[in-house]
Amino acid sequence: MAYGAEMLRWFSEEAVRIGGDQATSVDGNTRIMITKEPVGPCVLVTPWNFPLAMGARKIAPAVAAGCTMVFKPAELTPLTSLALVQIFREAGLPDGVLNVVTTANASSVVGTWMGSGIARKVSFTGSTEVGKILLRQAADNVMRSSMELGGNAPFIVLADADIEKAVDGALKAKMRNMGEACTAANRFFVHRSVAGEFSEKFAKRISELQVGNGALEGTDVGPLIEQKGLDKVQALVADAVAKGARILTGGSRPEGPGYFYIPTVLTDVSQDAELMRTEIFGPVAAITVFDGEDEVLRLANDTEWGLVGYVFTENMDKALRFSAELEVGMVGLNTGIVSNHAAPFGGVKQSGLGREGGKIGIEEFLEIKYTALAI
């Protein structure tokens, strides 16, 4: 809720800072005027894991830029998105500017919008697989595209790291939203000299988290979103254990109904385990030991995704080296949280195109126009 509200505050301020430029041509005969205009009608498609914040992160810059929108929220979380749209109406946004359609048949609805020739921009947050489909559809009408897709974030603990700080950061990077976040740390690479201490302390902190109904006081970890998500987590853990991983804590479901999974820490995870190549989207941390910095950079970058990476070290030279060499769009240095309304959010490789938030966020919804004025 707070993150979504800050997106609205941020882009309300950016709305009055849409700039341009003017200059005189080299030959002195023309005044060059650069202005920015709304890109046009936008298709906005959001996921279920942060239903209010993801909607606000797209709607806010579109409104600030002066665009109209058709908004398709996730099938699993429509009510929060409907409430968000109602808030905009109550705040005075004119009818027709923001239009919302809930559906269990997303491909049919969004496909119609994409093929209409009316929409000039698509902004999508979700899986890389669906993002590729939307990019193909966008190509037919040469639509502007913003894609915030999957992640497989490495979390690197170097030999000189502050272990207490690293454990705290790991807990935040892994367990935010039960691990159901594109920024969640999936692959934990820990230097051999501190692997035992980090693993023991991290597993202890994870084991102390209380699993249960989120409406009850004292609950730290709620359920996964649906049965499919639970089945995926169980299968990934079983595969890793079959390939030699050890369970330090968790590794099973609690008794009773619901899509709950006990927060899990695995160690001695093989590089050929499926969870090293797959976005887990659940409360499972996979720890691998490394010896050299070149080795861990190679392992961290050995993925088709490049959204975010986390590095813990007390050496600034190493911190800057890893920030430069990690093939990601965002880096958390000695922190497990990177999301910030004032910063550009997005990835490289198959983690997406474009950025949301920060000063650049509104540019995704603007076109540049050049006017030549004879002097």
Rank of each mutant, 00 (worst) to 15 (best):
P154Q: 10
M147V: 13
M143V: 02
Q137P: 09
G151D: 02
I156F: 05
V122R: 02
G115E: 11
W113L: 15
M114T: 05
V109P: 02
N141E: 10
R136N: 14
M114P: 07
V109T: 10
K121T: 07
N141D: 13
G131H: 03
P154T: 09
L149A: 08
T112C: 12
A153L: 01
S145I: 09
G150P: 08
V110M: 04
M147Q: 11
M114Q: 04
L134D: 05
G115C: 07
L149W: 01
L135R: 11
V122G: 00
N141P: 09
T128Q: 08
I118M: 13
S123F: 00
A138I: 05
M114K: 04
D140S: 13
S127V: 14
A119T: 14
R144D: 15
A139E: 00
K121L: 10
A119W: 01
V109C: 08
G115H: 09
R120Y: 05
M147D: 00
K121E: 03
A139L: 11
A138W: 04
V122M: 10
M147C: 10
E148T: 02
F155D: 03
F155W: 09
S145G: 06
M114F: 04
V110N: 01
R120E: 06
K121S: 06
Q137R: 12
I133C: 08
R144W: 07
K121H: 14
N141A: 13
F124G: 03
D140F: 12
G126Q: 08
R136M: 12
S146F: 06
S146M: 14
T112F: 09
N152E: 10
D140C: 11
F155P: 00
